[in-house]
Design a protein around this nucleic acid. Structure first.
Lengths: 249, 249
DNA sequence: GAAAAAGTTGCAGCTTTTTGCATGAATAAG
DNA sequence: CTTATTCATGCAAAAAGCTGCAACTTTTTC
């Protein structure tokens, strides 16, 4: 295993768990603790991690600790994000909507992956900015104070000029009959535009959002190719969606 | 559990409850009270908590905001931002560039003011979002990892469709002879476009940036209407700029 | 393509840090 | 004033870190 390969692995581990122990990594990667220590020191010098006695901590976790701690259901969201990452492939063009789950996705992106991300979300864009090898395109427009994303005709018309391989939607409500729904008209417009211009639609949802409906429709369940929750795919609650032909991860 | 992790946990506990007891933490974290005591003493030395007999108290009770401490020369930047705010008027359309000084400006914006801000800067936009009565328009485009702003043709062409009353530029280098200069080509393109579409140009600069020159030219000193530093307007160092007809605040 | 240089890795020996415990002093509470 | 905590200190064991070194691999140079 190459040194750089190993360091990427370490970075990835840190992004997922927010910390690593020298002893764990030593076993997991099959090298001595000294080597791990040296790696961590190098990464710390490059300001990519924070070295502490016994291991290292994630930098993004630390710099924004105050917010991170406040993220609701963070653990579940990290699980969801981890599953979603498996769908990403080298060179893809990906639409990413707003929401904390998507920001979490941006945070745990494998360092090696180089893809192009289009997003109207400020926080997702900022998180993606820290990723070394990906391109980030921010969709500009009037900023919705409420949602923290750009909205309006400009976003929609900008989206109409691209075609994405994948569209990753954070969802507030999803139901096997009613499809994906939301409560903010402007957000709905943006999501609709994203859906219309992507080959594959992936919905991320906490299990508590399942089988709930809100006022405004984003899309039919038939348009959703893949549903990701923190539940194991064979959970009962996911059955109605499978029956509608949605792939469940 | 890592030491730093444990201290993080203690800090969070303190922020929630405003106080902690050594005995509680000892049980909750599964370490001896001595260890907790040592942690609390360390945190107290770093001025993060207030140590008292039997435990510790929250410090943020009295003083809030941690992240501000991390901004370089924050005090000077706040002074600059405070002066710049006086130029803003009701209903104005304002271009704002990136940089921490401009973010500081966004932070101290008078709550009553309702203006429209166009910015390519992610952090400025996020800060402006918290302002109750202003409109924020984010200029979208490829995101420059380096500068944290949108760059590229789209930003420029978008700017060409508006005309602003005011353009507030954070500057890295300004010189009475060479004008405003910068080191990042893409940032320069965006700034140029902003300057070309605004009636009044305001440059914000720390005094240490005065009389310095970098490789790429943003604009001539003649194009700058107003220069704001943290210095009093009659400071000697500002004389060369006054002579060139720049208003100095 | 061989020799030299540079980089990588594990190990032994030693230093530093961390942690829990024992002891006695300091402090708060009744 | 008495009593029960709480605190500071020193100490020892364990864990983690650092350093130099030797073995090995990769890259560069001639």
């Amino acid at each position: 295993m190459l040194k750089s390969e190993r360091q990427e692995h370490i970075l990835r581990e840190i992004n997922i768990h927010n910390k690593v122990l020298c002893s764990d990594l030593s076993i997991k990667l099959g090298v001595s603790e000294d080597t791990i220590r040296r790696d961590l020191n190098e990464l710390a010098e490059q300001d990519k991690v924070i070295k502490v006695h016994g291991g290292a901590l994630s930098k993004s976790y630390h710099t924004s600790t105050y917010r991170q701690a406040e993220v609701y259901s963070l653990q579940e969201k990290t699980i969801i994000a981890g599953k979603a990452v498996t769908l990403l492939q080298e060179g893809m063009l990906v639409f990413v909507s707003g929401g904390t789950t998507n920001r979490e996705l941006a945070r745990i992106l494998p360092p090696g992956l180089s893809a192009t991300f289009f997003t109207p979300s400020l926080s997702t864009a900022i998180q993606l900015m820290e990723h070394p090898s990906s391109e980030v395109v921010l969709l500009g427009g009037r900023v919705s104070r409420n949602a923290g994303i750009s909205v309006g005709g400009e976003v929609v018309s900008r989206l109409s000029e691209v075609r994405a391989d994948l569209c990753i939607l954070g969802t507030n409500s999803i139901d096997a009959e009613e499809g994906i729904t939301d409560s903010d008209w402007e957000v709905v417009q943006v999501k609709k535009a994203m859906i219309g211009r992507a080959d594959k639609i992936v919905a991320l949802a906490l299990s508590e959002k399942l089988d709930s409906v809100q006022r405004m429709k984003v899309c039919d369940i038939g348009q959703v190719d893949c549903l990701i929750t923190e539940l194991p795919p064979k959970d009962k609650r996911l059955l109605p969606y499978k029956k509608k032909g949605v792939e469940v991860i």
